[in-house]
């Protein structure tokens, strides 16, 4: 991809993110410019309720799309993604453990044992699953096997979570179900002040891996010949994806679809496999997808916000299927 085309696409995507973010801030269940809304209410709804949600859409969408890209490159398979490989399930299971079984060990009676604790559990769960997947990938040359193991792992973790849910008291189960529905609207600006910089450090770290990532996309042996420390690269990818998936899952609940489909859509749209380009496009396209999903959920129902997973999957999946068929199922 030429430099000028990259810049044009990036600027266009940036403008789209900006446009959708403004629309997301302006549209909601309450009409901000009506006579019933006084100055104080206007300010509260805009800055305390809508702005954190819009920023969360950008942060979560971008982070999950980037994770998907990194995992798809690591496993050299477009089916890899935080959800398909069980990374999100690992984060969910550990949050389930924290909220349903281990909650009494922390602050008794607190719904969540504090967001910091939940974030740590979530990152630990994501990290553990990614390590297992990586271990399996070292034992086999078949990407299909790795993906199948990921899918199986996802099922096992889901079943373990189901078991914990079954054994949990109704009270704690309700708490967990509330979290697992996925929510973009529960984060505050203070939460974002913690999660935002952490995520951005992870994004920046990913940009330092552009060259070796381009090399391993061809072949690991080839990358090693070029002087890439593949083992170290793997560990860095695992750490980055675990932190990002754990962070987003802890704050927003498990969000499906974005991690796997945005990198696929980005490749199909922009016809490039260069990681600098793909990382930028995935970050922006991920934000576009979640902002659009949030907007659609506002437009579908004027009174409430639909669960984010429902909207992203219902609207996004047909789009990706269409793109796949249009490109004759050929993903680079």
């Amino acid at each position: 991809m030429s430099r000028s085309r990259f810049i044009v696409i990036t600027v266009c995507l940036l403008l789209l993110v900006l446009l959708l973010a403004i629309a997301d801030l302006c549209l909601g269940s309450v009409v901000l410019w009506s006579a019933d809304v006084d100055e104080q209410m206007f300010s509260t709804i805009l800055y305390d309720i809508r702005l954190p949600k819009t920023l969360t859409c950008v942060l979560a969408g971008s982070s999950l799309a980037l994770c998907g890209l990194l995992l798809q490159s690591l496993f050299r398979n477009p089916l890899a993604g935080p959800y398909a490989l069980g990374v999100s399930s690992g984060a969910s299971l550990f949050v389930g453990l924290a909220t349903m079984l281990l909650a009494p060990l922390h602050l008794s009676g607190v719904l969540f044992a504090g967001k910091a604790m939940v974030t740590l559990y979530s990152i630990a769960g994501a990290f553990l699953v990614t390590i297992i997947i990586l271990f399996v990938s070292r034992r086999t040359n078949s990407n299909v096997t790795v993906l199948l193991v990921g899918l199986m792992l996802s099922q096992v973790l889901g079943a373990a979570q189901g078991l914990i849910e079954y054994l949990a008291s109704a009270d704690k189960l309700k708490t967990f179900v509330m979290w697992s529905m996925g929510s973009l609207g529960s984060t505050s600006l203070e939460d974002l002040a913690v999660a935002g910089p952490l995520a951005m450090i992870a994004w920046l770290s990913a940009f330092f891996m552009v060259k070796p990532m381009n090399a391993i996309l061809l072949n690991e042996q080839y990358a090693q010949n070029l002087g890439v420390d593949v083992k170290a690269l793997r560990i860095r990818i695992i750490v980055i994806t675990s932190v990002l998936v754990g962070l987003i899952t802890a704050f927003c609940g498990p969000i499906a679809f974005v991690g796997i489909s945005v990198p696929i859509a980005s490749r199909l749209f922009f016809k490039t496999s260069h990681h600098l380009h793909q990382m930028v496009f995935c970050l922006l396209l991920g934000a576009v997808v979640l902002l659009a999903a949030d907007l659609v959920s506002q437009l579908i129902s004027k009174q409430l916000t639909l669960p984010v997973n429902t909207v992203t999957t219902l609207i996004g999946s047909p789009v990706v299927i269409y793109l796949l068929f249009k490109s004759k199922l050929n993903i680079r």
């Binding site: 909601g28 269940s29 309450v30 019933d36 809304v37 209410m41 509260t44 709804i45 309720i49 809508r50 009676g109 719904l111 009270d171 309700k174 609207g185 009174q303 409430l304 916000t305």
Partner: peptide, 24 residues
């Protein structure tokens, strides 16, 4: 009736009393 946070806030921000907050 299921409502969004901002709908509830817009209507009930000046509530004098708030009761039944789950198990908190």
């Amino acid at each position: 009736t299921p409502l969004s946070f901002e709908m509830v806030y817009a209507k009930a921000k000046d509530c004098d009393v708030w009761i039944n907050t789950y198990n908190l």
